[in-house]
Nucleic acid binder design. Sequence first.
DNA 1: TTGACTTTTTTTGTATACAAAAAGTAAAAT
DNA 2: ATTTTACTTTTTGTATACAAAAAAAGTCAA
Lengths: 237, 237
Amino acid sequence: MKPKTQDQSVSYTSGSDSDSTLRYRTQHLLRTAILDGDYSAGEKLKERELCELTGASRSILREALVNLEVHGLIVRESYRGYSVAELSARKISEIFELRSLLETQAAELFTERASDLEIDALSLAMKELEQCLVDEDFNLQRMRQTKEQYYHVLFSGCRNEEIRRALGSIIDRVLYLRAKKMVEPSRRKASLDEFRKLTKALIERDQFAARAASIAHLQAAREALLMSLAEQQANTC
Amino acid sequence: MKPKTQDQSVSYTSGSDSDSTLRYRTQHLLRTAILDGDYSAGEKLKERELCELTGASRSILREALVNLEVHGLIVRESYRGYSVAELSARKISEIFELRSLLETQAAELFTERASDLEIDALSLAMKELEQCLVDEDFNLQRMRQTKEQYYHVLFSGCRNEEIRRALGSIIDRVLYLRAKKMVEPSRRKASLDEFRKLTKALIERDQFAARAASIAHLQAAREALLMSLAEQQANTC
DNA sequence: TTGACTTTTTTTGTATACAAAAAGTAAAAT
DNA sequence: ATTTTACTTTTTGTATACAAAAAAAGTCAA
């Protein structure tokens, strides 16, 4: 496990929304740690260590772990504990199949249902996103938070808590993937372009263009991910 | 809470698949209790009672509750405990919006990807479903198990664990709704017809017809649910 | 009777303790 | 040297204990 820094993300997290019980804070802490790549895929999560890390007792910790488990971020094996979920090429394909379905729909719904306030918020989130990429020192954690914020606005704007929830789990894992692999600058530039197109369509409430931009973005992201995964596996072997 | 009987359903449940730790069994027990309508919507779930009911200790029980919470079957309020999730008309609409998106896609994928074995399984599940409705004494629990089985086969056949997972949570809540409201015989008959059409299309791997049947079924189900909800509320007031 | 206030009880939030399974380790036998 | 096996340590599965918050029940004055 790698070093850590602070996190102030507003997180649209997983499960019962922000209350400040210890369980919730613990769960949030673990989630961000995983999303920021502090653990490698497949790494075992020992309860003892996590207790020390978070300062929570085992009862609390385990409740938090159950939450992350249902969200698919970690997996449990009987009498063998938890470990960070591994994402095979197949799993990534499945995730993208579902994500495409949902996110495209979400984009479409956003153009229909988002309030003007939310349009502004999206515009702002887009500016932040641009900032992130323009700035010299590329900060992965900041990037993650910014993307999270963007998606938060997008998903909220489509006025369907259920879709938001389902997409939440999915996006978490996509963000996790990004933390681990694919940070090639070339893709970063292209990705930004796609986001620009999508945002423009969303702001103009152009349903057709939004759907198209969403599809294009998803397809490109999926290909890039699978490509870098293949590359990575080639290097390992 | 009402009396209970046995349950042997194979359940494609929620979260880490069938292992036989106490936590899993507890979670399964609670889930079926809720799905079979043993608790009324909004009813408070006192941990003490549930401990006695399930025989598990609080640690285990609470872990099970966290699972059900993430699946949206129950809701938690700080320092006020859990209660069965209430499903407003709005919530039902949201659920159906997501469900339509996923289930229609699932039906389509099934026609493409299901193995011949799975086609047979679906055919069998359909026969069971017919049996359920033909038999004199209508048994709600059996109906729930049978539907669950049908959906299990359908979702498995579309070869996407992620879609299956997302649909799982959704269907659970739909089954819960059915347990509570809408059991009008008229709708039952119509529903069976819709299932027949859908099944036929799926078995024949007719993608277009499957999608159409799925859409038709979902729309009818949604309308019936909202209708009976409105009726129910009218009676209450 | 009602309504504010206090006390008691219940219920949840959190921490710790004990038991059982798995993993790791070192000595004995081949 | 290698394998086996007994033993120790670690880790998870499960149960219980204590503290804090909320709900319920009384109490007393107007």
